[in-house]
Amino acid sequence: MKKQKIKKVKPGRLKRRENMMGYVFILPWLIGLFGLVLYPLCQSFKYSLNRIVMNPVLGRVMTFQGIDNFRKIFLEDPDFIVQLQGYLWQTLLAVPVIVAFALILAIMLNGNIRLKGFFRLIFFLPVIIASGPVMNQLIGQGAASIPMMNVQMITGVFGSFLPKVVADAVTNVFSNIIMFLWYSGVQILIFLAALQKIDSSLYEAAKIDGGSAWECFWKITIPTIKPMMLLNAVYTVIFMSNIETNGIITLIKTRMFSSGMSGGYGYASAMAWCYSIVVTLIVVVFAAVLMGRKDIYERRARKHRREMRKQQRLAKKFRRRGARNERRNAKKAKKAA
């Protein structure tokens, strides 16, 4: 008998024509995507390979320079590399701190406590007021560090064994710890909403099987809210890369309007490209870390399967060897006979 192919059900012509209406609805966004995102992206790449000078008579004058802008950024610019490294370490350090902190707070708020609304009100408050200039003012006043905390000592401890850039980032995070905690307002709410959606019968079943609260946390809560952890990590990276306390974006803007060899649209575009690649890489790193790991049960099952296969192979080997030896013995016996 011939195998019957299962055909995919294609939408009918009417349905297809109707679906075309989707383009009408997303048309404004589509124009914006091409006009204000993709086209400027290519344009910006073109700029980054050019040197652009503003001339009062001729307007913009572009001269092609190849990768000269990038060479200057990495080899001659005194600020960019320092800022970029600082940003990189700070983000890699602060994002896990923020996400973990938000998770802990969300779990505490999710418990059976009074004044839940009041606490949520406080923890969400920074979302409203955390803008770049306000944060800069607060950092300038030293209001962003906890007064009881001894930052000097922490810096000393970390500075003794870490490279300077990393140690600086650690110091920065600790001395402005309130600022970083302030960035976790939305994340707390997202975790809280996710925690409330977890089926309580899961916990009951675990309890009946003798699971402790600790085990429940690692084997029910964490796997369930893992997608939310990814969402929060990405959100935090984007937020931290766009707020004005981040020195690197201010640097790009200053360079955009400064004249001279290390300035102008071309140079700033090259900087923006480097910066964007770093931001995207950070997002990819967090996505890989949070998406790649499988469930604990899956991991255990896979381990078990691997073990089984190993044993089977071993058993097969023994059997084969046994058969071979038998044959040999039989031959020997024959010879002897």
Partner: peptide, 26 residues
């Protein structure tokens, strides 16, 4: 609507969210 190319466009939507505004600024 399930128009063709929807998944790609959704991907581009998220991509344009991750992209820092500095790169398209100039």
């Amino acid at each position: 609507y399930n128009f063709p190319g929807k998944k790609i466009l959704m991907g581009l939507l998220i991509f344009s969210f991750i992209l820092p505004p500095q790169i398209t600024m100039m």
